[in-house]
């Protein structure tokens, strides 16, 4: 009775009780921003004043793009794509095995699950560029560093994603195979894998896209491929050539995305 009265008499509230939480959140965000600016001594004025210089530098040094060596970049382009292909391919197989070991539905030994999960989490959480920088010290400059760095991170990424997908499809559905006396590997092959295929394709294509980008960047730390060319040309002040190579990189990435998207559309 009382509530009805207040409803008709006062204005309708959109929330049950007043809260100053939103204000606190806004204050916290602004505080973080202001602190960062002051701590790093970033001056907005310098940034704005520097802008014309940057644009000038770009137009003077980078333009015109020099396309005379275009054909010479092709082997490096193929190298870069090759690292991504090899790394994605190998890691999709290894990550599937690890995914099975992580998922509760396919591995009942908790100790092994936790161990593999921890191992994969380490692989995944060390950025590929750091793996690259570390591995260059071990293997020296070259392609194997690129492949290994990508492989390690992709195994981490795909292992976790695959395990989550297996968790989603498994469960009650597999009871039927369990109940009719099928063996563990038969349940895996006939119950889990068919249902897992769409997720497997999706995650692997996604990993390939990421790996093509990462493969370019890895060249900058000496892991081979087209990234090396960008680094060398900038160091030699050949900005015109560097610009062309950057344009080639953009093309590679766009083409990769186009290709993976059309594969997705066709298969799924």
């Amino acid at each position: 009775m009382n509530k009805q009265l207040t409803l008709t008499q006062s204005r309708v509230l959109l929330k049950q009780e007043k809260s100053n939480q939103p204000i606190l959140i806004v204050i916290a965000i602004i505080a973080a921003l202001v602190f960062s600016f002051f701590y790093l001594k970033i001056s907005l004025v310098d940034m704005i004043v520097g802008l014309p210089n940057f644009i000038l530098f770009f137009f003077q040094k980078f333009l015109p793009a020099s396309t005379e060596n275009l054909a010479a970049y092709i082997p490096s382009v193929i190298d870069t794509l090759g690292y991504a292909v090899v790394a994605t391919y190998l890691s999709s197989i290894l990550a599937f095995i690890l995914g099975i070991l992580i998922s509760e539905h396919t591995n009942k030994f908790k100790a092994i699950r936790l161990f593999v999960r921890g191992f994969i989490s380490i692989l995944r959480n060390i950025p590929f560029i750091i793996w690259g920088a570390l591995l260059v010290y071990i293997f020296g400059i070259g392609g194997i560093v690129g492949v290994l760095a990508l492989l390690l991170v992709t195994i981490g990424f795909l292992g976790k994603s695959y395990a989550e997908s297996i968790d989603e499809i498994a469960g009650d559905k597999l009871e039927a195979l369990k109940a009719n006396g099928s063996s563990y590997f038969q349940i895996l092959v006939h119950g889990i894998i068919p249902q897992f295929i769409p997720a497997w394709i999706n995650w692997t294509l996604f990993a390939f896209e990421i790996n093509v980008r990462a493969s370019v960047v890895l060249g900058l730390v000496g892991a081979g491929g087209i990234g090396v060319l960008i680094d060398t040309n900038i160091n030699l002040f050949k900005y015109g050539e560097a610009l062309t190579i950057i344009a080639v990189v953009v093309c590679i990435i766009l083409l990769t995305e186009f290709a993976t998207n059309s594969i997705r559309k066709r298969i799924l």
Binding site: K173, E175, A176, S183, H190
Partner: peptide, 30 residues
């Protein structure tokens, strides 16, 4: 022993992306 006991479920529990005859043949996996 489980292979000598057939079971039918409320939610059917078929393997959705596998065709009908293969699903039936799952009965002989053991």
């Amino acid at each position: 022993e489980r292979s000598k006991i057939g079971m039918i479920f409320q939610h059917y529990n078929l393997v959705g992306r596998t065709n009908v005859i293969k699903n039936v043949l799952h009965g002989q996996l053991s």
